[in-house]
């Protein structure tokens, strides 16, 4: 049996809102040691989502036996919208479940609402992603990266990211013209999350689809900072930290013909 209680429903709501536009169907793997893990690839096979909600993200978590919950995220999102952000949220599943029970408890009122979501058998490819050294890593405020991704998409379908020791440059060239935004590393002592940190083994220039970057920044509400790891001619990793766990996106780059 699985029983996971979140202190606030908002965490799972934000996670599902962050990924449901990229992947519609996915398997939630549940285990006592790892909590909930998900790997899912978008239909175009350009963007991969790797989610880990550790048991530490829950107020209470028990999973007697490893379980796979096949979920339609659009349907789960509809059910999660029934509860308030501050409610306790408990998800419950039997050992061979055909449905997931979702329970909201209002902390002030005596109101308990229960919903049952039908589960599905989902056959999905899993990619083997080894931990690897990256050429560079940038940590920056999540809202700032979101603004850049959204603004630059209005100029071009592609966004080039150029990292050097001294700066990170976002470059877009489109039909109406071009634009660039340059950020320099700095440390904000009073608000550490406002800092911009660059770690560099070697400079990198990579180009990504603006559409996919805009899918990724839907996770902005989850974390105050985003870490972007880049390697020449390889997919990029965008990581949003959860209170205990992470939401990672792997995005395949574009290459010049």
């Amino acid at each position: 049996m699985l029983e996971g209680k979140f202190e606030e429903a908002s965490l799972l709501k934000k996670v599902i809102e962050s990924i449901k536009d990229s992947v519609k169907l996915c398997n939630f793997n549940c285990s006592q040691s790892k909590g909930i893990t998900v790997q899912a690839i978008d239909d175009s096979r350009v963007l991969l989502i790797a989610l880990k909600i550790d048991s530490g993200s829950f107020q209470e978590f028990r999973c007697d036996r490893d379980l796979v919950l096949g979920l339609d995220l659009e349907s789960l999102s509809k059910i999660l919208k029934q509860g308030n952000n501050e409610d306790y949220l408990t998800i419950i599943a039997e050992d061979s479940p055909d449905s997931l029970l979702v329970v909201f408890e209002d902390k002030k009122k005596d109101r308990i609402s229960e919903f049952s979501l039908k589960l599905m058998d989902i056959d999905s490819d899993v990619l083997t992603i080894d931990d690897m050294e990256h050429d560079c890593s940038i940590t920056m405020p999540a809202y700032e990266f979101a603004k850049i991704a959204r603004d630059m998409k209005t100029l071009s379908e592609s966004l080039q990211i150029i990292i050097t020791k001294d700066s990170v440059k976002f470059n877009a060239e489109g039909q109406i013209g071009s634009g660039s935004i340059i950020l320099k590393p700095h440390t904000d002592m009073e608000k550490p999350d406002e800092s911009i940190k660059i770690e560099l083994n070697q400079p990198v220039v990579l180009t990504f689809g603006a559409k996919y970057l805009n899918d990724i920044v839907k996770a902005t509400a989850l974390s105050s900072t985003v870490t972007i790891k880049l390697t020449d001619k390889a997919p990029a990793l965008f990581e949003y930290r959860l209170p205990s766990g992470y939401l990672r996106y792997y995005l395949a780059p574009k290459f010049d013909d």
């Binding site: 690839i41 175009s44 096979r45 350009v46 963007l47 991969l48 490819d125 899993v126 990619l127 083997t128 992603i129 592609s158 180009t207 689809g209 390889a234 997919p235 792997y250 395949a252 780059p253 574009k254 290459f255 010049d256 013909d257």
Partner: peptide, 14 residues
């Protein structure tokens, strides 16, 4: 125009 790559060009399908 740059060409969009596919993730399976970089990672193996398990």
């Amino acid at each position: 125009t740059p060409i969009q790559n596919d993730l399976t060009e970089f990672y193996n399908v398990a």
